[in-house]
């Protein structure tokens, strides 16, 4: 029985965060798990911060992960990884895509953007395991830069505590995409999986 496993997926609008949680959630349901989730989109406009939460297990009721109760944080973007650290604890795993999406407010000097070193240092101080990936590069290797989100999903699947079967997640990817796109995405998934194992 799975009691509670909380996955937080963070990124910027347009990075495919919602699709990741859909694929993960579908797979979890197929594995017979109880699933609760929610997304925080703000106004449904591109460029804003996006957080999607997927919660697995029999002792989960609410749609939102309480602060400090995140088991895995998948950050599609560097600063968004840092933004969500209040959900983490020592035992949580962070999978960090080092890609930076710098908004105009930084260009016109109205806000800041952290350096990679700052982000990694703070994350390391909070969680025992931080895995860094260049998902964009891996996605290119798989055949399309559009698959960065699937690379990250693959990396998440390599975390031993994740209660969803790798095979089932791959099935839900297979079902979602058709033809050649399915192949490219499955490759992206595998490469992400391997990259996380090696990291």
């Amino acid at each position: 029985m799975v009691k509670e496993f909380n996955v937080l997926i963070a990124g910027v609008g347009g990075q495919g965060v919602i699709l990741m949680s859909e694929l993960l959630g579908k797979a979890a349901v197929r594995d017979g798990l109880r699933v609760r989730g929610s997304e925080v989109l703000g106004m449904a406009i591109r460029g804003g911060s996006v957080v999607s939460m997927i919660r697995l297990g029999d002792e989960v009721y609410g749609p939102l992960i309480p602060l400090g109760k995140g088991d895995a944080l998948v950050a599609m973007e560097l600063a968004e990884g840092l933004r969500n650290i209040a959900y983490l604890s020592k035992s949580s795993v962070v999978i960090l895509n080092t890609q930076r999406i710098v908004p105009a407010t930084v260009l016109i000097g109205k806000s800041n953007y952290p350096s990679l070193e700052e982000v990694v240092e703070i994350l390391n101080a909070i969680s025992n395991r931080v895995v860094r990936l260049d998902a964009a590069r891996i996605a290119e290797e798989a055949g399309s830069f559009m698959t960065a989100n699937i690379v990250m999903l693959g990396a998440l699947s390599a975390i031993s505590q994740l209660p969803v079967k790798v095979k089932t997640i791959k099935e839900s990817i297979q079902d979602h995409f058709s033809g050649k796109l399915a192949q490219v995405n499955l490759k992206a998934f595998d490469l992400g999986y391997q990259a996380c194992q090696q990291a």
Binding site: V12, I45, A79, L82, P103, V106, S111, Y113, P114
Partner: peptide, 9 residues
């Protein structure tokens, strides 16, 4: 203070 502000645009 380290984080970028991302207003909807």
């Amino acid at each position: 203070p380290l984080l970028p502000w991302r207003p909807p645009i």
